[in-house]
Design a protein around this nucleic acid. Sequence first.
DNA 1: TCCTCTTAGTGTAGTAGATACACTAACCTA
DNA 2: TAGGTTAGTGTATCTACTACACTAAGAGGA
Lengths: 222, 222
Amino acid sequence: MPFPTETGRAVLTTNIVVFSLRDEQLKLLLVRRRNPPFQGCWSLPGGVVGEDEDIEANAMRKLEEGTGVSGVYLEQLCTFGDPGRDPRERVVSVAYYALVPSERLRLRTDEHGEEVAWFALRGLPELAFDHGEMVSVAHQRLAAKLEYSTIAFQFMPERFTLSDLQSVYEMILNRDLDKRNFRKRMLAMEQIRQTDEVRRNGSHRPARLYSVNNPHEVQIIK
Amino acid sequence: MPFPTETGRAVLTTNIVVFSLRDEQLKLLLVRRRNPPFQGCWSLPGGVVGEDEDIEANAMRKLEEGTGVSGVYLEQLCTFGDPGRDPRERVVSVAYYALVPSERLRLRTDEHGEEVAWFALRGLPELAFDHGEMVSVAHQRLAAKLEYSTIAFQFMPERFTLSDLQSVYEMILNRDLDKRNFRKRMLAMEQIRQTDEVRRNGSHRPARLYSVNNPHEVQIIK
DNA sequence: TCCTCTTAGTGTAGTAGATACACTAACCTA
DNA sequence: TAGGTTAGTGTATCTACTACACTAAGAGGA
């Protein structure tokens, strides 16, 4: 039995807000559009979902194509389907956000002749379509999750200092945190473990390195 | 310029998890399917999004058709688009949830010859498609929002007692709350106001009636 | 009318988590 | 070895949440 309507079909796409930390800043991966509409404009990575492709699998694939990394944290954000959001025809986009640890990044630029670049979250260019709104929703969600989950650890490399971790929180929340209270809180949740290594850089006391207990899980705290 | 692909099109639908309080229970609105697949099975209200219709507007319209109420709280939940979720063809459903104050409900049954009914959340029948999963996500979201927002007030009529309100919380969270602590917390957030009316019912002390300060806003607390 | 039943309404002490806040430790370099 | 820089630590206060038990007010029936 066929679906009882011929209307209501839409092009199904994904877009991914890819966060990473580079140069001590919270940055986003953007792609420059080569075709109209919004030709030349920066936009979020993403693409059309294949005939028999799972939506999340599509987002993960696009993410891998853009960054060269796999298995990173990816979460559905929300769906944008305003009838006028694409001037060509009805396009529905399921937005995701992803967190990529900086160490793992190898930017695959120009693989398909695409111009791809990282932009600081504060200082984004005007984005194509409703992608600016997607970024804003993603940032809000990420900041909210910092407070009650271990999501920030998704950004961390295998070994990191508590100061590294604190600056991740500070970049996302966009405010300074008290060092002692921060350390107490992090250690109290027992999700990271001290190692016996230290990092020496610069002419000051070396910093103890820590590692995440369950690097592939995001736990809800409290 | 046409969209540069002929693949990737999907039927776009909505489904709404409609919560209401009836007979001292948290209930959901379900519709019995008249056609295959899942013929005769209960399912969530919803339908195909029109050619030029906004997705949320479609959800609101379907909600109004099912319940006869308008202007109630409606929030996007998430999007389900598994390639096999509908055996006929690729159907993507944007799931919403809605909260309907019990007083305003007039169930429009049989308007289109559809069988529509309220089911207690505990004691739902097996649902069509992935609607069971939608219900579970909606209930989790609702319970989470109770803790940090004024969302519960969306269920309340114009005048209600604190005991009424407490039983809303208890039904959603599925556990008993301490009366004194609950009242302290509710009054501390200064979102409800005592009226000079009381409600007399039964042979016991009458209960003071309260009203919500901003009944159409859901505020994030703390 | 007064006794009983039922739901409404109230306060306090203890605990746990969050905040504010300033100094010492370790290393490097000049 | 003195100065500069980042790492690392503890305590007092405040605030929010928890646990907990009795009195108040009305209705109905004896």
